[in-house]
């Protein structure tokens, strides 16, 4: 796999956006996208957690699971690593950035079960990325996820005042917007492709 980390980085933001092409991490994406501020807060947390855990999980996989031929245990190990890391981040934020800690509230612990995070860790294994590629994919994946939630939050804020048929309000409307956004992002796929 000789794809340049730069290519992977940009591809994971635009053409292979983990949310808009793989549809991972939808639950917090749909529920937290009501306003820009909390979307950005959650997005920042996702970028940070995704970047670090994808590297950590890569190292754990390559240097612990592979040598002992325990690849089949990757789900449980990845999840423990992600959970522990989120817990650690929560403590650090509570101590040093109480403001952000309170803004994120329950969303931060929920990142533990954000499937985009586990998804990225698994893609790294499946696509046999090396260290730098993993780093690029983790960071790009987080940024791409944030980009998508910010775009949706922006659109939802704009259409807040417009009349939407009752049956389509809320999640229904968000799904339609997501679908159209996903179509738009497919437009990028001619430029770069990593999968």
């Amino acid at each position: 796999m000789g794809i340049s980390p730069f290519v992977i980085f940009f591809a994971s933001i635009f053409t292979s956006n983990v949310l808009l092409t793989n549809f991972l991490g939808m639950c917090s994406y749909l529920s937290i996208s009501k306003d820009l501020k909390s979307s950005l807060g959650l997005g920042e947390a996702v970028i940070f957690v995704m970047t670090v855990t994808s590297v950590l999980n890569y190292l754990v996989y390559q240097y612990i699971l592979v040598p002992f031929e325990l690849e089949y245990l990757r789900f449980i190990v990845f999840i423990i690593v992600i959970a522990a890391f989120v817990q650690l981040v929560e403590m650090i934020l509570e101590r040093f950035m109480p403001n952000l800690y309170y803004t994120l509230g329950i969303f931060l612990p929920l990142i533990t079960v954000n499937c985009a995070i586990l998804g990225v860790a698994l893609f790294i294994v499946i696509r046999e990325y090396n260290f730098l590629q993993s780093l690029a994919y983790g960071a790009g994946g987080g940024i791409g996820w944030t980009l998508a939630i910010l775009a949706l939050a922006g659109i939802r804020q704009k259409v807040d005042e417009t009349k939407i048929p009752k049956g389509l309000q809320g999640a229904g409307f968000a799904m339609i917007v997501t679908g159209i956004m996903a179509l738009a992002f497919i437009g990028f796929s001619g430029i770069l492709a990593i999968q």
Binding site: F68, L70, V77, I80, V81, A84
Partner: peptide, 14 residues
């Protein structure tokens, strides 16, 4: 023991 070891390490860290 390997999986527990990872768990023990993370628990100790936390």
């Amino acid at each position: 023991s390997i999986v527990s070891g990872i768990g023990v390490f993370l628990a100790a860290l936390l």
